[in-house]
Nucleic acid binder design. Structure first.
Length: 420
RNA sequence: GGUGGUGUCGCCUAGUGGCCGAGGGCGCACGCCUCGAAAGCGUGUGAUGGGGCAACUCAUCCGUGGGUUCAAAUCCCACCACCACCGCCA
């Protein structure tokens, strides 16, 4: 949620942001008008209510006929108060509903434009030259008896899979390595709920009612998270944190669930795009003025992981039109995928500034003792998809895969070999 | 799933329709006292929104949401969380 007071003082900022995202900036005028009407309705209600309260006093003191007369007037007043309150509430609800649909104000440094208008910030490592025809990750996964898509589909449908044997070990090792790195960098490891209440989902910036990505359990009014970011953002909801405990950094380990509606026919082979995967996610609560620096730190930690795994990748600065609801800026790291001859997203780090905190009411006390919203940020440290890059980039002609040194102790193997 | 109990300002607690427009204690902050501190004494002590340059002021908030009433922390209903016991089950 954006800040209403900022909007009143500087509506052009939101207009510019909306245009950068390629969205309608007329919403600004609608918001301002609604806000104005709500405030005057609220003032009307409040003065009526004050009158009612003082009037009620005289009723309790009066006796006999006088009391009866006062009671009659009091009843009228009560009705007026009720009507005024209802009006203020209705306008408040209307405003709130509209506010819920307004995305975060984008960072002015974010590139303008849509999905293809990203800016490549840097390229790290060189795509490897193969002296044989490299296999794709699924061919390797099947050869290694590590990935079983067919039985995944049998049991759960398309885009589900089993990780088996060295595949299971690889994922556990990878995620554990990520978690250990996070711990070394001061993060508190967390294993989070994967089912959350609607207000948690909504507060993080996902539309429970409209988002096509979300799995729902309507009978229980619970929602499967697409990332532990959701649970970690909700973790401190409704709290006022101590300024001296910031920044708070959590590393969440969870399964993630995505419906992938509308991506029919895209990435249908293998585990690039699946309904359920596992992820270690970094999540930071910081002072708003520290959020840009923290964003760079998260990016640096992502790169540390990718470097340790000896993967060639590039870093892109996502354009405004391709940012999610909550993000003011987003950097993605994309690893080279030899079988596709292109870079694919492995990590994504977003600076959500105070947007999520405002919705979830996560605050801290500033120097003057006043509560202020924190800024929240998130970034990927490892996911199931990374297996794709590891298998493909480190494969050998016989289908075996030489694990990068840093990963070996976590997997307990140096080379993944096809079973005899 | 069932039965019973509990839910008040950071913590503990008072409060069974108007004197609660929430009292007290602890904690915390400031002041007095002191060479300094402790103790003691005094003052203050939340959130949200509206108005105001400001001191300030008005409204809302007693788990959440409804309802009854001129008036609700207090009465009624539903829900949630926690505790205890019972039943069922990885």
């Amino acid at each position: 949620m954006i800040d209403l007071r900022t909007l009143r003082e500087d509506p052009d900022r939101l207009r510019a942001s909306q245009r950068a995202r390629g969205e309608d900036d007329a919403v600004v005028d609608t918001l301002l008008d609604l806000d104005e009407r709500r405030r005057s309705a609220l003032t009307r209600f409040e003065s009526l209510r004050a009158e009612q309260k003082s009037f009620g006093k005289s009723v309790s003191k009066a006796q006999g006929e006088e009391k009866a007369a006062l009671l009659a007037r009091a009843k009228e007043l009560a009705a007026e108060v009720k009507a005024a309150e209802a009006e203020a509430e209705a306008l408040g609800a209307e405003l709130d509903e509209l506010m819920q649909t307004v995305p975060n104000i984008v960072d002015e440094d974010a590139p303008h434009g849509g999905e293809d208008d990203y800016v490549v910030l840097e390229t790290c490592g060189q795509p490897r030259r193969f002296d044989f025809e490299p296999r794709d990750h699924l061919a390797l996964g099947e050869l290694l008896d590590a990935i079983d898509m067919e039985r995944g589909a049998k049991v759960s449908g398309s885009r589900f899979f089993f990780l088996k044997g060295v595949g299971a070990r690889l994922q556990l090792g990878l995620l554990n390595m990520a978690l250990q790195q996070a711990i070394a960098n001061g993060f508190t490891p967390m294993i989070t709920p994967v089912l959350v209440k609607p207000e948690t989902m909504q507060g993080t910036g996902f539309h429970v009612a409209h988002d096509k990505e979300i799995y729902r359990l309507p009978e229980d009014d619970l929602y499967l998270v697409g990332t532990s970011e959701v649970s970690l953002a909700g973790y401190h909801a409704q709290e006022i944190l101590n300024a001296d405990e910031l920044p708070l950094r959590y590393a969440g380990w969870s399964s993630c669930f995505r419906r992938e509606a509308g991506s029919y026919g895209k990435d249908t082979r293998g585990i690039i795009r699946v309904h359920q995967f596992d992820k270690v996610e970094m999540f930071s609560y910081v002072r708003p003025e520290d959020s840009r620096e923290e964003h760079r730190r998260l990016l640096a930690w992502e790169k540390e992981m990718l470097d340790a795994l000896e993967l060639p990748y590039r870093v892109i600065d996502t354009a405004a039109g391709d940012l999610g609801m909550s993000a003011a800026r987003k950097f993605d790291c994309e690893a080279w995928i030899p079988s596709q001859g292109r870079y694919r997203e492995l990590t994504s780090t977003s600076n959500c500034t105070e947007f999520q905190a405002r919705r979830l009411a996560v605050r801290f006390r500033d120097k003057d003792g006043k509560p202020q919203h924190v800024a929240t940020l998130n970034g990927t440290l490892a996911t199931t998809r990374w297996i794709v890059a590891i298998l493909e980039n480190h494969q050998q002609a016989d289908g075996s895969v030489v694990l990068p040194k840093a990963l070996r102790p976590y997997v307990g193997l140096e080379v993944l070999e096809p079973p005899k």
